[in-house]
């Protein structure tokens, strides 16, 4: 896909970002942030994943079809999560 194979400087930058992310999530886990612990951990994990997808997997400069495929995959994952939780989360109300 990326016909032009440029220098690999960019990869080390991404690696650094991922390392910072890992340290951050590790440190954040030890602070008692009440209900915010999980959302923060997930947010950091999502940013790390987005970095890997866009740069390491070259989705940033690939054609529209690949981008749509990635988004579709995540959308279907969300269908599975949200509609299953519609049941389990609403059980105490009924």
């Amino acid at each position: 896909m990326s016909a032009h194979a440029g220098a690999i400087k960019g990869y080390f930058a991404v690696f650094a970002v991922l390392m910072v992310g890992t340290m951050l999530t590790y440190y954040a886990a030890f602070q008692d942030l009440g209900i915010w612990n999980t959302p923060i951990a997930l947010f950091i994990a999502v940013t790390k994943a987005v970095c890997v997808v866009l740069i390491f997997m070259h989705v940033k400069d690939s054609n529209r079809l690949t981008k749509v495929t990635v988004v579709a995959g995540l959308f279907w994952l969300m269908i599975l999560f949200f509609l299953t939780m519609v049941d389990f989360a609403s059980r105490p109300w009924s």
């Binding site: 269908i79 509609l83 519609v86 049941d87 609403s90 059980r91 109300w93 009924s94």
Partner: peptide
């Protein structure tokens, strides 16, 4: 988006 119509009496919640 519709799979739980196989489970209406299987013990899922009313709102689901």
């Amino acid at each position: 988006l519709v799979w739980a119509h196989h489970m209406f009496v299987a013990g899922i919640s009313l709102y689901a």
